[in-house]
Design a protein around this nucleic acid. Structure first.
Lengths: 243, 243
DNA sequence: CAGTGGTCTAGACCACTAC
DNA sequence: TAGTGGTCTAGACCACTGT
């Protein structure tokens, strides 16, 4: 009868989270209504109240529940089917939108970076990989993208990787470092000759310019990415939370 | 000698957080190096280990510290002086950039919303407040902004509020609801007559169009905001984290 | 008033890391 | 082996909400 297994290798607070999620999905716990109190749950699952609190705290952090002092703990509205927050690569972004991404790799080479890039990536006299790509979604050109990556961080990076997987996938599966965060700067511009041709738009059309600087868990910058999107087909969408 | 005051109205875990932050700032706890163990800290502050853990957990959530199993708790790289993530109002955004915001309120009225707004705000036959404002930073026009707010949610909202404080401040100090999240859509456009004049830019110049839909903790949408920024003075900047 | 979440204690055993 | 964070217990008192 009891849903938590004290001998399971999974921590009990985790098992409780899963059970509460299940009940929310099946509708036993309704959106906007309170779930049972912490004391009731600790009796029900036969664990201490602190353990129930840990489960609930995690779910509050993930915004599945919210607490109100003196009133109770409530099921939050599940507004966003798929979260649109967080750092994503072009490939991931397109897949999330239900489109099929692919690349045309125009340039892949090692080079000495310009001053701005050197500064941003905190480099000395080191080389970077330089990539220039046209990004397609469902076979339509969406963006022109330039990327600078310090060679030192990924000495074994090869051109063929970019045909097979997303660079972010590569980092997370093939290396022992991981991505922490990015700072994005977004501005509007007007397409010149260089942008208009590859994107198949008119000169003078609006374009969206996004510069992203990505950071690893240890705090080091690992990429500078400059993208130019056609604004008739692409909107930048993101979910943000109040801190 | 002791830095935590058990009789203070501030919770002890909060006082401990503040003390650890102070030590990081003054350099006693160094970036990338471990802070004292939880057991040491609980002796030092004369509190139980769970209380120390609560302080540390909060700081890990805020990415000031990170834990490594069996090794210790470490001071994270402090990349961003001031966090640029999260949902912010225009006023808050400008202050964070070190600029002085002010408004010119062109329209403040109650009206029946158009279909799109009605749909977005999940309204029936209800009225909304409609605001149209020119937003200034350091006395230069930065954006034209239209906002739709359901009257039902803030029946006592008055025009004069917008002169005194940020709408977000109003919500968080004068009402008993609070802001959870927002979805922002950003695109590039070309200034027409309507945008060029109030922003003091040329027709045909690039503009940044941002639509924000804001949500309360209980999941209800509380505002639809459509902003047009001049792109020669304004860049949208945000920090994002990998999930 | 009874019930809720918020905070806190003083222990305990575990798996993991480093030496 | 000794030290670390991860998990858990069985209590306790508080401030806040609703009736």
């Amino acid at each position: 009868m009891n849903v938590v297994d004290k001998d399971s290798p999974l921590p009990m607070y985790y098992q409780i989270e899963e059970d509460i999620k299940r009940r929310i999905e099946e509708g036993s716990y309704e959106t906007g209504k309170p779930i049972p109190s912490e004391r009731e749950l600790s009796e029900k699952y036969e664990v201490s109240r602190m353990t129930v609190r840990q489960a609930i705290s995690n779910m509050v952090r993930d915004r599945l529940l919210y607490r109100e002092k003196g009133r109770g703990t409530f099921v939050a509205e599940q507004k966003f089917e798929q979260p649109l927050d967080g750092v994503t690569s072009f490939s991931e972004d397109m897949k999330r939108r239900g489109l099929s991404p692919h690349n045309e790799l125009l340039v892949f080479e090692k080079m000495i970076p310009d001053e701005t890039t050197k500064d941003i990536l905190a480099l000395g006299t080191e080389e970077v990989y330089y990539l220039k790509r046209i990004r397609y979604a469902d076979n339509e050109p969406m963006a022109v993208e330039e990327t600078f990556i310090p060679v030192r961080l990924f000495p074994e990076l090869e051109e063929k990787v970019f045909g097979v997987m997303s660079f972010y996938e590569y980092i997370e599966t093939k290396t022992d470092v991981s991505i922490r965060s990015a700072r994005q700067t977004i501005e509007a511009g007007i397409a010149g000759e260089d942008e208009a041709a590859p994107l198949a738009i008119d000169e003078g059309a609006a374009i969206l310019q996004i510069e992203r600087i990505g950071y690893l868990t240890n705090g080091l910058p690992f990429e500078r990415n400059i993208s130019t999107y056609r604004s008739d087909r692409y909107k930048f969408i993101s979910d943000m939370y109040r801190n």
